[in-house]
Nucleic acid binder design. Structure first.
Lengths: 234, 234
DNA sequence: GTGCGCAGCGCACTGAGTGCCATCGGCCCC
DNA sequence: GGGGCCGATGGCACTCAGTGCGCTGCGCAC
């Protein structure tokens, strides 16, 4: 929990060298030489050279997992994972300069992109695991959980990247809220309005109808019929 | 285009050793010794030890990209990317035994999981690039492209993994079709029937209606009215 | 003081990946 | 047939990431 200054010194030295001469052109020996520590200590703080680029993702992932774990039973699951994704974006937004630097590195270096994918994959699996628990018993629950988790992560990344491309200028939260609203709309989170008090345990089979706003009514009816008849038996 | 037997020999030797003693416990020297070739030749065919686990993904990705590139202008974009995903699944299904072996490897070895993520990420970006081209000009077009691509890939992977977990028994296509139908429904691909020729550029706002199956019709109507009136302005 | 534990350090080692050059076999041209 | 070209392969040496092990120095309890 405490912050060893050695770790921060290694991160600072690594980023300085990565930025001025490139990631692959920088050896671990040069990093530890600049930081003034022994080579062996580097690998005690970071399991690999790539991990120094994502110094606090373990903590961030743990925070997000804890946030999901402490969800009240009656929270709307999709709302909750969107809130979790929003939380992750806020962690990025805490250090805009650092996040932008890292973005530029990961954009250029294929190896770092692979590392980032592993990191993001763990976030996505955490979201999916939460949704799987909430969707257990529903038809296609696991499928829905995986797809919604992927969509939330994609929306989050879309907003995050556009914010990073603008060098961290502007408000990151409005973009991510807009993106997440799109996902919520697509996957049918009903707005918390009238009719929210039906027995929720019996809402196993659902029909999701997506219609264009302003579409002619005959199209709406057609969609209803199609959705009702195409539902699988189970 | 031709198939050098040396490549296949390396893949066979590698998988034999990976399966009998584990991926990380197998060195490249052992692979080339079993295959009876020089160590240097291994890296001429595979840029890294991990790539021998995905021997034909470059070709598969190229096929999928070509399939998307040759899409007629009037094809429904979401339908097209779903068809592309279905095509990838068929390539997996061509060699069930090999796909199952690889699945077990990637499930156990974290390094291989990271490689697989990189591979899948390239598929997803190809799908997203296609959708971005088709959605250019639409509001939130890039966001929609990214989210739909991620959802399609997630649905595909969900079906693929459940098929792989069953050791390649059964029909892989029905599961993937069902999963992709869910995505299509969520993102509002209208079935190719009457009314498919309205101006598509105006389908920005959507209304999502969720109803219990078997609910009385008056509740359905009530939900429709509620959803229509509760939609935010933008 | 003495023993203990811990954080860092040095060193040697494995193994992936690369650059360079030698070799060998086919193949064209003369 | 001979000579030269070329692509595929093999061998070798090298860099560098990552690991195991033992040593040292320092704080701390007893």
């Amino acid at each position: 929990m405490t912050k060893p200054p050695m770790r921060d010194a290694l991160v600072a030295a690594a980023f300085q060298l990565f930025l001025e001469r490139g990631y692959e052109q920088t050896t671990v020996d040069e990093i530890v030489a600049l930081a003034g520590v022994g080579r062996r200590s580097f690998f005690r703080y970071f399991p690999s050279k790539e991990d120094v680029v994502f110094p606090d993702h373990e903590r961030c992932l743990a925070d997000m997992t804890a946030y999901l774990a402490e969800s009240p039973e009656d929270t709307e699951p999709v709302e909750r994972v969107c809130a979790a994704a929003r939380m992750v974006l806020l962690m990025y937004a805490e250090n805009p300069a650092f996040s932008v630097q890292r973005y530029r590195l990961t954009k250029k270096v294929p190896g770092l992109r692979a590392s980032e994918l592993s990191v993001v994959w763990r976030y996505e699996r955490a979201l999916a695991a939460f949704l799987r628990g909430r969707f257990a018993g529903r038809t296609d629950g696991m499928l829905r959980a995986d797809v919604i988790a992927a969509a939330v992560v994609a929306a989050h990344n879309n907003a995050l990247r556009s914010w990073l491309r603008s060098d961290g200028q502007g408000d990151a939260t409005t973009a991510v809220d807009h993106a997440l609203d799109y996902v919520k709309a697509a996957f049918g989170t009903p707005p918390p309005g009238p009719g929210g008090n039906e027995p929720r345990q019996e809402t196993e089979d659902v029909v999701v109808l997506v219609s264009r706003r302003g579409a002619p009514m005959w199209r709406v009816v057609q969609e209803i019929e199609s959705a009702l008849t195409n539902q699988p038996e189970n």
